[in-house]
């Protein structure tokens, strides 16, 4: 039997201590998660076993040393309640018989063991409480931090959006799928000659007109039904004062997280000047500057288009007039549709 004596002739059974530590390690691994291997745990607990034995055989007050053992169990993440139960319970039975070489007949041992049990439990409880406070505070702080980050990112995003929205030269309008205008920027309001507040009272539907390009209204309906993600057209609006404004209009659909349509965002560019310039240039190219009458170019242009149409020969059916034909085909442009989920 391997036994060591100390100054008072008291002794610890090292083989017994080893056995006790091995069982202790097995118990804590069975009880909960231990970040150490069984062998590593056993080493740690063997040191504690010897420490406890030394205190038991000593005459000094057990409190500080045994409380430290309880605390170090928590520090090693051996925090399952069952761990302290096992540790306290075995101290009064198998610890004294297995770890002490000569427990029998030792006076005052029961009282000393009881004091050690109290100290072990107290040290464990104190350390566990501190650890719980620390971790609770840590996770709460992390949550506020994550929330602050998210809110900050939202605020930044909102500020970026506001800057783009307010500062854009193009008109931007946001409407619900029911057509209610939720917000428009100043550029949009200026373009149509309304105030921003006036436009917020208006339904998108009232901005559509009978002379819009064919299929425009249907396209918009399909967009808010979620069949398209974006629509781009050239569209004529009527300003509050009744004058017309030609626009390049791009409408995008914003969806809910589950894919349901939520908002439409319209970005509108005033292309009236460009449009009118095009018309003027075309007119000038096709008419005599002096008389304003159709010139040779228009004549041959129209002739060739008539020839193309007369297939088979003899069925001339062109209905266009000299001046009006081009305008009606180019003005409204061809509505284009992008993205369909």
């Amino acid at each position: 039997m391997a036994a060591v004596g100390d100054s008072g002739g008291k002794s610890v059974d090292l083989a017994g201590a080893r056995r006790y530590a091995a069982d202790w390690a097995q118990a804590v691994h069975r009880l909960g998660f231990v970040p150490l291997s069984v062998a590593e745990t056993e080493e740690l607990l063997y040191a504690h076993t010897l420490r406890l034995a030394a205190v038991l055989l000593d005459t000094e007050a057990p409190a500080p040393a045994v409380e430290a053992v309880g605390r170090s169990l928590v520090d090693a993440h051996l925090t399952e309640p069952g761990v302290v139960e096992w540790s306290v319970r075995t101290l009064s039975d198998r610890f004294r018989t297995e770890v002490l070489a000569d427990a029998a007949g030792r006076p005052g041992l029961d009282a000393r063991i009881a004091a050690m049990q109290g100290a072990l439990a107290a040290g464990f409880a104190r350390a566990l409480r501190e650890r719980t406070f620390r971790q609770q505070e840590g996770i709460a702080r992390a949550m506020w931090q994550a929330r602050d980050d998210a809110e900050q990112a939202l605020r930044d995003s909102e500020a970026r959006f506001r800057a783009v929205f307010d500062g854009a030269a193009m008109g931007i309008g946001i409407a619900g799928v029911d057509g209610t205008i939720i917000d428009v920027n100043q550029a949009f309001a200026d373009m149509l000659g309304y105030s921003v507040d006036e436009l917020r009272q208006i339904n998108v539907a009232s901005l559509f007109h009978a002379d819009d390009a064919a299929g425009l209204w249907e396209l918009y309906q399909e967009l808010i039904e979620g069949k398209h993600d974006a629509v781009r057209v050239e569209k004529r609006y009527y300003r509050k004062d009744g004058s017309a404004v030609w626009t390049d209009l791009a409408v995008s659909l914003i969806r809910h997280d589950d894919g349901r349509p939520r908002f439409t965002v319209a970005v509108v560019e005033d292309i009236t000047e460009r449009y009118e310039l095009q018309q003027r240039l075309r007119f000038q190219a096709l008419h005599d500057p002096l008389t304003g009458l159709p010139n040779r170019t228009l004549f041959f242009d129209t002739l060739s288009s008539l020839v193309e149409l007369t297939d088979p020969p003899g069925s001339v059916s062109a209905s266009s007039t000299w001046t009006g034909s081009r305008r009606s085909t180019t003005a409204s442009g061809t509505p284009s549709v992008t993205g369909c989920s």
Binding site: H77, T132, I139
Partner: peptide, 30 residues
């Protein structure tokens, strides 16, 4: 989520990470 926009922090919903922590004996959970 658009890039740079963190997901919403929903305090009323449990998190897999914190549930896992609880099972490992941690106190980083609600």
């Amino acid at each position: 989520k658009p890039d740079g926009l963190p997901a919403e922090i929903d305090l009323s919903r449990p998190s897999a990470a914190r549930v896992y922590d609880y099972f490992l004996g941690g106190a980083h959970n609600f």
